[in-house]
């Protein structure tokens, strides 16, 4: 049985006004309910790709479809299906944590789920307890990140785009977040596209991985397939091998 395609990226190019060619002919597909990780060094084009999929910037060339909807033709429809967590995501410092979650929930409430339901679930994911009644400006970096993860996952989006989801979190918090991400995929069938520098995290979370370098896809497949193909013991070694192979 053919799986439904959640994300279809075809021949994607992005040239910034500065002239930087950030993405050069990138193509990949993500199935519905899949966790797909983009890995690559700094400046490889991961964040640019995620921003295009999240409708923040426009592709210079190529096509991106989210559940059959083109990001260029109908960005408003795409935004209804996605929830995006940028690498450096801030929250309004003068709002209380719970106010922020309610504010965000208001945009995703549909059908039987009220903003209060979504905000309540987000409060649970965040694990911030009573601290949600404090203003966000009093939060640590880790607390802010947990708040962001919570507001991204709680609406049960069709596609969650997570740029470095555990960035700035300690080991325990990172593990909790990884478990939450997995749980949400299993429970609600959310498709997840993430980028990460943490190979351990990628190996643990992802069904498939796309390794990109200088805006091009070097390899793609399940982590075990990539390890087998490159003869590496872990994704870090595989990553190094592939980079050397292209002569970098």
């Amino acid at each position: 049985m053919n799986k439904e395609t959640a994300v279809k990226v075809n021949g994607l190019h992005k040239i910034y006004p500065s002239g930087v060619h950030a993405v050069e002919g990138l193509s990949f597909n993500i199935d519905k309910g899949e966790i797909y990780a983009l890995i690559g060094p700094n400046g490889a084009g991961k964040t640019t790709t995620l921003r295009i999929i999240a409708t923040l910037i426009k592709p210079s060339n190529g096509k991106v479809n989210i559940f059959g909807v083109d990001v260029l033709d109908n960005p408003n429809e795409v935004r209804k299906m996605i929830s995006y967590l940028p690498e450096e995501a801030g929250a309004y410092r003068n709002l209380k944590g719970i106010e922020y979650l309610k504010f965000m929930a208001g945009f995703y409430s549909r059908g039987s789920r009220s903003p209060e339901d979504i905000a309540g679930e987000a409060a649970e994911i965040s694990g911030l307890g009573e601290r949600l009644l404090d203003k966000i400006k009093t939060y640590s970096k880790g607390m802010k990140r947990r708040l962001q993860i919570a507001r991204t996952l709680a609406p049960h989006p069709m596609l969650a785009i997570l740029d470095e989801p555990t960035s700035g979190l300690d080991v325990m918090a990172s593990m909790e977040i990884r478990d939450t991400i997995k749980k949400y995929r299993e429970k609600y069938g959310i498709t997840i596209l993430l980028s990460s520098h943490n190979m351990l995290e990628v190996e643990y979370l992802s069904d498939r991985v796309g390794i990109i370098f200088k805006g091009k896809l070097l390899a793609e497949g399940a982590p075990s397939d990539i390890l087998e193909r490159t003869g590496a013991h872990n994704l870090e070694e595989a990553f190094r091998f592939l980079i050397r192979e292209v002569g970098a």
């Binding site: 408003n76 995006y84 967590l85 995501a89 945009f107 995703y108």
Partner: peptide, 14 residues
């Protein structure tokens, strides 16, 4: 400056 813009622009609103 407070990195809230990207989230705001990705929300399902006009």
């Amino acid at each position: 400056e407070e990195h809230t813009l990207e989230v705001l622009l990705s929300l399902p609103l006009n």
